[in-house]
Design a protein around this nucleic acid. Sequence first.
DNA 1: AATTTAAGTGACACAAGTGTAACTTAAACT
DNA 2: AGTTTAAGTTACACTTGTGTCACTTAAATT
Lengths: 191, 191
Amino acid sequence: MARERKFSNEELFRLVKKMLLQHGYEGFHFGLLAEQLDISRGALYKYYENKDELITDFMLFEMQLFIGDLAQIENQGDFEAQFDFLMKLIFDKAEVHQLISVVQQMGSSSNDKAKVSKERLEKLPLEMYHYLQSFISLGKKERKLKEHIPDSVMLGLIFQSIAIPNHFGIPKSVWVESIKEIISKGMFAHS
Amino acid sequence: MARERKFSNEELFRLVKKMLLQHGYEGFHFGLLAEQLDISRGALYKYYENKDELITDFMLFEMQLFIGDLAQIENQGDFEAQFDFLMKLIFDKAEVHQLISVVQQMGSSSNDKAKVSKERLEKLPLEMYHYLQSFISLGKKERKLKEHIPDSVMLGLIFQSIAIPNHFGIPKSVWVESIKEIISKGMFAHS
DNA sequence: AATTTAAGTGACACAAGTGTAACTTAAACT
DNA sequence: AGTTTAAGTTACACTTGTGTCACTTAAATT
């Protein structure tokens, strides 16, 4: 019916991700994106009204992928296996955490359409928590997790651990194992 | 020798802090700052060549205050008291963590002077770690802390814990105590 | 081959922030 | 009172990104 597009959605999202991670929210703009896609800036406005709408769309896509991975936690056997799975997933998909922090930099949109999907976007962390509720419940039910600590503190700390800056370049395996140990058994020696 | 300044350094830094926390790095600009100080934008250029230089200057000031507080950890008695002091300090001065993340958003400066002090700035987290080295050493020496976990992982996790988002509005005291418990003794129940 | 239609282009007006420099103002010193 | 000096103002030129719209292009349909 019409000429074919010069770029695919995959290519677009791949570049958006790369640019967001590289330059952050402020450094991301249509000019740069268009250049990398080898199209004119104006063409992008055929698909997205503005930057926020594009980023929001991308994030919904990206987060749904991540939540898809996360959902597999239920097939991991006992509680310890689920814990290991979760930690591995988080450290393998470290970018997700960075991308979430980009969203929080997004100012309040002028656009109405963008506002709606941004609200959806802000609910995604909560949705993630919801998916993990069964994991925490299992742990508490099996008396593997301390029952007096609120679920959200546990999940928050687990997810935040990905963002600890490794200033001294500790090898990844040592790094991850150390964090897992602290989270599960603490940094205090047994007395 | 000349007319007196319409604003003090304290007032300036107070506003810079407020604006950085409220609007982030990108939302911070001379126009807004000048308006709040009730001076013209041009006047600010008498003191700082650009935004990065001002922010850098402010951050050095702010961090030195924080490091000053931190240094008092040595007067806190035994290891447990030092641990409690550190956690309390971090949660009382939560803004510091936010401010540090602002710095990481600063692009590479064009200005030479700014570049130099920005390098100094990026070393500050390391300097902080250095100040806390004695605390960790004490803990390990007294066999209160697990010796096989690298210092930087412990300190990183402690500092990062301030950034865990409290999506569900858990009361502060419960929140802080829960985090302290996980960090020190883990989230796993004793078997 | 002519027509339709969506993809893509390029120029324009706009907005917001930047940095500069000539100028004005007011305090302090002679 | 006159001079000096730093503080502050204002206007200007510049840069970078935004959003729009009339226009061109190329694939598919008839």
